[in-house]
């Protein structure tokens, strides 16, 4: 057992759920040490990290962490790993998280594993590869294991602690100050759960004909997130940030409802590991039905509103 570093995933100080999953996983393998990079560390953040068993919290704030892309965060995290002699570093497998993991692995001369869907006490990881066709068990056999973990890899389990706090004075090199962030436009808030973290995802494809209204209404009735197929995104019907599939997000919710999506390999790669899959499609031959636990052959424009009304009635 040793120190397992957890990079806190936060938006302006608000700790995301993925961090509580990482802390839960880290407790299996050793003592979780949280690393909070950037500004916004406050009582609320402290409270979350303490509730999920962080034994120590490193807080590093430097203007470079927000002015420049990725590289300063990787340098700060490497310094934290060295400071506590970490045996492993866990980060969220987001776009940025994977880039941080990549740079950290080079800095520490460590092996890196990405997109882990589970991490065991001996730090053996589970990954789903080749569009969900295979499950792989992997390990970093020596050195500091750098592991990027997918959202929903663990159910967060509280374990209250009183972590020691330490301000980490980090030095950011000139090399890390070369990709300057000159503007930032936050994604418009939808009020829905984050796609990769949601327990329920309702996705629309070509069959929507561009009208995502019925998809959004059903997602809202079920308290789920909205996703889209590549065909729908390429047609300009829904933003790319919501694309599920090989070139978009990979989701693994409790329930995945595909409406007007045929189920090409490109899409299956992003949702095949969902617990329950439900499909609505006009084409009875659509490959999505072969993997669905329940399917309805028909027009989503009449079926989805009926489901929404029925769900609302049952919830009322």
């Amino acid at each position: 057992m040793g120190e397992i570093l957890v990079l806190v995933d936060h938006v302006d100080g608000v700790v995301r759920k993925t961090t509580t999953e990482l802390l839960t996983i880290a407790r299996r393998a050793g003592d979780p040490v949280a690393v909070f990079l950037g500004s916004g560390y406050d009582d609320a953040a402290r409270q979350v990290l303490a509730s999920y068993g962080a034994t120590k919290v490193y807080v590093a704030d430097a203007p470079e962490l927000e002015e420049f892309l990725v590289a300063p965060k990787a340098e700060a995290l490497a310094q934290a790993a060295t400071a506590c002699g970490a045996v492993a570093v866990l980060v969220t497998a987001s776009a940025e998280g994977k880039e941080i993991a990549a740079r950290l692995a080079v800095k520490l001369g460590s092996g890196v594993i990405t997109d882990a869907t589970d991490v065991a006490a001996d730090l053996t990881t589970t990954q789903s590869v080749f569009a969900g066709g295979y499950t792989v068990a992997a390990q970093v056999p020596s050195g500091v294991a750098v592991i990027a973990v997918k959202p929903n890899a663990a159910t967060p389990e509280p374990s209250p602690s009183s972590p020691a706090e330490e301000k980490l004075a980090v030095t950011i090199s000139d090399s890390a100050r070369r990709a300057r962030i000159v503007a930032r436009a936050p994604r418009a808030a939808t009020g829905r759960p984050e796609l990769t973290e949601a327990a329920i995802v309702v996705s629309g494809g070509r069959g929507t004909g561009g009208d995502f209204g019925p998809v959004e209404e059903l997602a809202d009735a079920l308290g789920g997130a909205v996703g889209a197929s590549r065909a729908a995104v390429d047609s300009g019907w829904y933003p790319h940030a919501y694309q599920v599939g090989q070139t978009g997000k990979t989701v693994s919710p409790q329930l995945y409802l595909a409406a007007g999506i045929s189920g090409a390999i490109q899409h299956r790669a992003g949702m095949q590991t969902s617990k329950t899959i439900v499909a609505v499609n006009k084409d009875p031959e659509a490959p999505i039905f072969a993997m669905a636990d329940f399917g309805v052959v028909g027009d989503l424009h009449t079926i989805l509103p009926q489901v929404t009304a029925e769900v609302r009635k049952r919830k009322a």
């Binding site: 460590s110 092996g111 890196v112 053996t124 992997a138 390990q139 020596s142 899959i277 052959v297």
Partner: peptide, 22 residues
């Protein structure tokens, strides 16, 4: 290699559930 694949298992095909026509 600093990361090692220990095991590779083919994921069982998902079995098709009930499909009804609207």
């Amino acid at each position: 290699a600093l990361s090692v694949v220990r095991e590779v298992v083919k994921r069982p095909e998902r079995s098709q559930g009930e499909v009804v026509t609207d």
